[in-house]
């Protein structure tokens, strides 16, 4: 059983997924934050792979990527962070999230091999829809990496089978039409859609985009198997606060959905 599957099986409450950008604002700080996340209450970790042109991200995540790149982040260092994390933690699932070009330039096969070897559990590649994913998907599967697919409010029932084919680990429901860090979704609007999706799949559904506070988290946890918090954590890092401050923030989010 994969770490992701085991995590969802073991929890009798929604999971908390936290996002940070690898190498933001520098590798050491980012590593400190990463290592502290599980104890603070993060059930699954999303680690962003910095990209110069993140077209689905709002200003907070854009700036995080720029800070990381300026401090020398690259794919090699991101994978090294995962190795360092795994040296101490063999339980918490870790998912890499980002855009396709840095993976393509690293070499898709080389990336999949090294990511799996480093202890990555799954991948979210924002600009790689199912139509373009066959190579990456085949290579990822061969290494036991989950391809986590995005569903959005614009996803029609007609398109669902295409997205679900080959999806594994969990599904990421982008709750708003918009970029990361935008306003929170209207629960009443997304609830029927998520219920409809659930009739087509047994995969857990994580809800993300626009969830910032413990109250937001509690509200969205009512309809999702997991909630994803990114921009508000990244903002804490942007303000130069310590790994301890991030841990406090994550603890408060975890309590809200316990």
């Amino acid at each position: 059983m994969s770490r992701i599957e085991a995590t969802f099986k073991a929890l009798n409450r929604p999971a908390l997924i936290t996002f940070i950008m690898a190498g933001d604002p520098d590798v050491q700080t980012s590593m400190d934050v990463l290592k502290a996340l599980p104890d603070a209450g993060a059930d699954i970790i999303e680690l962003g792979m910095p990209f110069s042109d993140p077209m689905a991200d709002g200003p907070t995540i854009q700036l995080a990527g720029q800070r990381a790149l300026k401090a020398g982040a690259n794919m090699h260092r991101t994978l090294q962070m995962v190795r360092n994390f795994r040296a101490e933690n063999t339980q918490t699932p870790l998912v890499l999230m980002g855009y396709y070009n840095p993976i393509l330039q690293y070499g898709v096969e080389k990336f999949m091999n090294e990511a799996a070897e480093a202890g990555v559990d799954g991948l979210i590649i924002v600009d790689l829809p199912p139509e373009e994913a066959s190579e990456a998907q085949t290579l990822a599967k061969a290494k036991g990496l989950d391809i986590i697919r995005l569903l959005t409010p614009t996803t029609t029932e007609e398109r669902l089978p295409k997205i679900l084919e080959g999806a594994s680990g969990f599904l990421y429901y982008v709750s708003i039409t918009g970029v990361t860090g935008a306003a929170q979704a209207d629960l009443n609007k997304i609830k029927p859609h998520i219920e409809q999706i659930k009739t087509h799949t047994d995969l857990p559904i994580a809800i993300g985009f626009g969830i910032k506070t413990p109250a937001d988290a509690a509200e969205m946890a009512a309809v999702g198997d997991a909630i994803v918090v990114g921009s508000s954590i990244v903002q804490t890092i942007a303000e130069g606060q310590s790994a301890g401050a991030v841990s406090q923030q994550v603890s408060a989010l975890a309590k809200a959905i316990a």
Binding site: P129, L150, T154, V174
Partner: peptide, 20 residues
């Protein structure tokens, strides 16, 4: 028909935009 000029082109966009 999928918008490829040899290996180039295609549709590398966020899922939100795909239906549109």
């Amino acid at each position: 028909e999928r918008g490829h000029f040899g290996p180039y082109g295609g549709r590398y966009v966020a899922e939100t935009l795909m239906p549109l």
